[in-house]
Computed example of a mutant assay.
Amino acid sequence: MKRIFGFGRKRKGQPPSGSASLPCPAGAYELRQKDLGKLHRAAASGDLAQVRQGVKKYGTDGRAKAERTALHLACANGHVDIVMYLVENKCKLNLFDNDNRSPLMKAVQCQQEKCVAILLEHGADPNLADADGNTALHLAVLSSNTTVAGLLLEHNANIDSQNKEGYTPLILAVSEHHEEIVEFLLRKGADVHARDQCERTPLMTAASGGELNLIKVLLQYGADVSQKDTNGWRAEDYAVIHGYSSLSKQLAEYADWENTGEASMGGGARGITALGTPHRAAAAGFTLGAPAVDRGAIDDFSQGDSIR
C-alpha cells in the first residue's frame, strides 16, 4: 500500500535532521529555506506583500526545487489570500511538481478546503493523475474528507477513476476502512462492482479485512457476492483466507439466500431479512461494530463471535 500511494518514497529536497526549515502542516512539503527563492519562500510562509513583489519581478509560474510553483507552496500551506492573488494574476493552475501533483492535489492532500474551492472555481482540473495514477479524489479518500470529495464531485471529478493498481476511490476507501466516505461515494453513484487490476471488488476487499459495517453497506448498494477475481475467488474466499471463516460462511449463506430467497436458517444466516435499501435486500444478520473475528481468535459461532 505504501508503494502504491507514494507514502514510502523519499521526497527530493527533504531536509536532513537539524537543517533550517519552514513549518508545514501534515502532508505539505518539507522545505529548506536555502532551496527557495524569495517568491517561493514568501508563498510558503504566507507573506503576501513579498509575493506581490516577487510576482512583479519573476512572474507567477517560476519553479523552485522539485518543480514546485508558488501556487503549489501556497496551497500546501493553506495561504488562501496568496492562492487568490496568484489565481487572479492568471497563474497556471495545472502544473505538476516532481511527483506529478498539481496545486489542487496538494491542497486536497493537505486538507486545505478553501484553497480547493478557489482552484476548482477558477477551472483547475480535478481529473489529473499523479505519478501513482491517483487523482485528487483518491487523495481526498486517503484523508477521509467528505467535504473535499464533495467539492471535487461538484466540479466533475471522475468518481470511478482508477490509479495504476486499478483502485477506484471506492476501492481505496474500503481498503483504508473509511466507512463514512465509502457510504458517501456510494450515495454519489460510485460503482459498487468496480474492479482493480486483479479483478477484486470492493466487497472482496472488505471481506479480507472482516469489515462487517462495510460489507453491510456494500450489500445494501447491490454488491454481488457471486463475483470472482482472476483467481476465481469470491468474497467468501477472501474472508476465510484472511482468518474470518465464520464471516465466509455467512457470505456463502447470503449468496444462497440471494439465489433462492430462502437461505438456511441455521448458524450465521439466522436473522437475514429484506431491508429497505437503495438497491436490494441486505443482510441484517451482519452485526455492526468491530471487524468480524481477529485472525487468531477462536472462530466458532458458539463462542459469541461478532457474526450471529
Results as ranks from 00 to 15, higher is better:
residue 3 R to L: 12
residue 3 R to V: 12
residue 4 I to T: 09
residue 10 K to W: 10
residue 15 P to C: 14
residue 16 P to A: 15
residue 20 A to F: 09
residue 27 G to P: 05
residue 27 G to L: 07
residue 28 A to Q: 05
residue 32 R to M: 13
residue 45 S to R: 13
residue 48 L to T: 03
residue 51 V to T: 07
residue 62 G to F: 00
residue 65 K to T: 08
residue 67 E to A: 12
residue 72 H to I: 03
residue 84 M to L: 14
residue 89 N to R: 15
residue 89 N to V: 13
residue 90 K to W: 12
residue 93 L to M: 05
residue 99 D to C: 14
residue 100 N to F: 13
residue 105 M to Q: 14
residue 106 K to Y: 01
residue 110 C to P: 07
residue 114 K to M: 11
residue 115 C to F: 03
residue 128 L to G: 01
residue 131 A to D: 10
residue 133 G to C: 07
residue 134 N to L: 09
residue 135 T to S: 15
residue 136 A to I: 00
residue 137 L to P: 08
residue 137 L to E: 04
residue 144 S to D: 15
residue 144 S to G: 12
residue 146 T to C: 15
residue 150 G to E: 05
residue 154 E to F: 02
residue 157 A to D: 06
residue 157 A to V: 09
residue 160 D to C: 11
residue 164 K to Y: 13
residue 167 Y to Q: 10
residue 170 L to I: 05
residue 173 A to Y: 04
residue 174 V to D: 05
residue 176 E to A: 13
residue 178 H to L: 01
residue 179 E to H: 08
residue 185 L to V: 06
residue 187 R to I: 07
residue 196 D to M: 01
residue 197 Q to N: 15
residue 201 T to D: 01
residue 203 L to M: 09
residue 212 L to E: 08
residue 215 I to H: 01
residue 223 A to D: 04
residue 225 V to Q: 00
residue 230 T to M: 02
residue 237 D to L: 00
residue 240 V to T: 12
residue 243 G to A: 09
residue 245 S to G: 11
residue 246 S to G: 04
residue 247 L to I: 09
residue 251 L to Y: 06
residue 258 E to Y: 05
residue 259 N to M: 09
residue 259 N to W: 07
residue 263 A to N: 02
residue 264 S to P: 02
residue 265 M to T: 09
residue 268 G to F: 02
residue 277 T to N: 12
residue 278 P to R: 04
residue 278 P to G: 04
residue 282 A to I: 06
residue 282 A to S: 15
residue 284 A to D: 15
residue 290 A to F: 12
residue 291 P to I: 11
residue 294 D to M: 07
residue 297 A to E: 14
residue 300 D to N: 15
residue 306 S to V: 07
